[in-house]
């Protein structure tokens, strides 16, 4: 049997490598199961994957879960400012009752998680450093995710929405003053050529995005026990690799920006608290307004130490 796995990233990307690891393990086990990967949106566009996955028209995907936030408002919590502080905290969050609730919602859509994982990101500006809310006032900014747009707008920034691939040109022509995206995008789009200062994810960071490897639940349950076990075993290995690589990407981005003469700024506990307070009034409030029963979920997530 051949399973189809679709994602939006290039074959150099860590998320592709995670998928490839599982495909290789499954193939090596020789249990009549084959995973065919369609990288770089060669089958479905990025935001087009969740619906076919939930209907069994697509078997597997590596997807930022918040992309499906329009269908399941609770998923917006997986890209919410200040909910995750660092990668180890993210790993604890994955094992928490909060994630159990999120996974229960996925199950309603016939979707299950094989590999958990968060990737982090930071801020960078063409003129100054961005660590605290006051730093973004009056700036034209691009943010990754609507909760971040709401928070930054609350801090007095003007929001221009665009794809991460457009940041470079927009900064060059002066359309943008600052941007927020993932560490790997900052490096792969060579944003260091355009900015004066970079705030990478470190001890404290705001931007964490949950990007799991998902599978259609019925398809999984239709596999033989041996096949299921092999998949789960391979997924466990891939998950450990994913966490290590996620940390490494943050460190790499810090290094690349520094090497290119960009000033590196750090976010302090104080800054983090100020952002979280702002997020409470903006993004969290908007989330709960959109999904009244979301308050309970939000509290569960905030309770994770």
């Amino acid at each position: 049997e051949t399973l189809r796995l679709s994602h939006q990233w290039s074959t150099q990307d860590v998320r592709h490598k995670v998928a490839q690891m599982i495909a290789d393990e499954v193939k090596a086990a020789d249990i009549g199961l084959d995973i065919r990967i369609f990288p770089s949106s060669s089958l479905f566009k990025a935001r087009e994957q969740y619906t076919p996955l939930s209907r069994g028209q697509l078997d597997m995907t590596v997807l930022p879960l918040s992309y499906a936030g329009g269908q399941r408002a609770a998923y917006n919590l997986t890209l919410m400012p200040g909910l995750v502080k660092n990668h180890d905290h993210a790993a604890r969050l994955n094992e928490s009752p909060f994630m159990d609730d999120i996974k229960a919602i996925m199950a309603e859509d016939d979707v299950m998680v094989l590999v958990d994982g968060y990737l982090a990101g930071g801020f960078s500006g063409t003129e100054g450093c961005i660590t605290a809310p006051k730093d973004v006032e009056g700036k034209q900014m691009r943010a990754a995710g609507k909760a971040f747009e709401q928070m930054l707008a609350g801090a007095g920034a003007s929001i221009a929405s665009m794809a991460s691939s457009e940041i470079y040109n927009a900064m060059q022509t002066g359309v943008l003053d600052a941007a927020n995206t993932s560490s790997s995008s900052f490096v792969s789009y060579r944003i260091y050529e355009q900015v004066a200062c970079y705030t990478p994810p470190g001890e404290y960071a705001l931007w964490f995005m949950y990007q799991p490897l998902l599978m259609n639940k019925s398809t999984f349950e239709g596999l033989s026990e041996e096949q299921q076990d092999t998949l789960l075993e391979a997924s466990k290995k891939a998950e450990a690799f994913y966490l290590e690589e996620a940390k490494k990407e943050d460190a790499d981005s810090r290094e690349v920006f520094a090497q290119n003469g960009v000033e590196i700024a750090e976010m302090t506990q104080e800054d983090f608290d100020a952002w979280r307070e702002l997020a409470r009034e903006t993004s969290y409030a908007a989330f709960v307004e959109d999904l009244p029963e979301g308050q309970e979920l939000l509290d569960k997530a905030l309770a994770v130490e």
């Binding site: 479905f44 566009k45 087009e48 619906t51 076919p52 209907r55 028209q57």
Partner: peptide, 11 residues
């Protein structure tokens, strides 16, 4: 796949 066509087209 047929049921997917309108979605793909729109996307």
């Amino acid at each position: 796949s047929l049921t997917l066509m309108p979605e793909i087209l729109f996307a």
